[in-house]
Design a protein around this nucleic acid. Structure first.
Lengths: 139, 139
DNA sequence: ATTCTTGCAAACAATTTGCAAAGAC
DNA sequence: GTCTTTGCAAATTGTTTGCAAGAAT
């Protein structure tokens, strides 16, 4: 999606292009992963201020537009990331808390099984696997 | 685990067997799945009253003892269930919100892949797959 | 009798909402 | 100028904590 493409999309739906919305999207892009709070903090590094409630409202809007998605990597707050770059499965290590990503094909067997056996279409992009990474397995 | 077995276990660790603890465990067992709030409501159907904070404290204790586990099926509240019956993968339908369970072997390919490729040991019992069930796929 | 547990209310954290002022079109 | 969006503060919701009274051992 080009820079102007989503501006068009916003306008087409009667929404407006505001600096806040651009800043939030930019922050999500730079952070890769981020909770609303983290995204808010990131935005504040560059711009003077964006209210936390605006961040929430913007993330909701961006999600509705399909530009970002979120997963629940921890119990406290949801984590947002670009939908375009969301084509991966999340791995969260219970030992060190490290979050990593792996190719979605990794889950192909599971996806195919669910589809064939139950007619359930899995959204791999929202898939998070908890466990222990190599380093934390021994410790 | 027999009825008395976990009573012994509680006492062995210096904890006490109280009606509240038995009621909460019973509620989790009957509900299958439940948020702290739902569990509290269930308990109140039979007994006069258990405070919500006691439910939280009890679930924390039961989890520590390995009798229950929890997953995050929605953004709002965690869902608790019996650890003994937790050997399954959760499916959550985005359409109707229905929560179902499937055999953990379904994820064998994924688990094996992560293990072999990254040395990551996945905890399948905490795995939740989001998507759309057969019924909601068309609608 | 001792020590763990509970209930209650207050403290907290994350998120949402109402509304007037500011901004995009 | 019209209608959306923002900021702010207050309201909600989910969860935790301090402490005195109550219960299990």
């Amino acid at each position: 999606m080009t820079e102007t493409a989503w501006h068009e999309e916003l306008r087409a739906k009667g929404y407006r292009v505001t600096p806040q919305r651009q800043l939030v999207l930019e922050a999500v892009k730079t952070l890769g992963h981020g909770t609303p709070e983290e995204i808010c903090a990131k935005v504040r590094q560059t711009a003077r201020g964006v209210n936390i409630s605006t961040v929430y409202r913007t993330l909701e809007l961006l999600e509705e537009l399909g530009m970002v998605t979120h997963t629940h990597l921890n119990h406290v707050a949801p984590t947002y990331h670009l939908a375009a770059e969301a084509d991966h499965v999340h791995l969260v290590c219970r030992g060190c808390g490290e979050v990593s990503e792996v190719r979605p094909e990794m889950a192909d067997g599971l996806v195919k099984g669910l589809e064939e056996e139950l007619g359930f279409v899995a959204d791999v992009r929202h898939l998070t696997v908890f466990g222990r990474c190599r380093g934390c397995r021994v410790a």
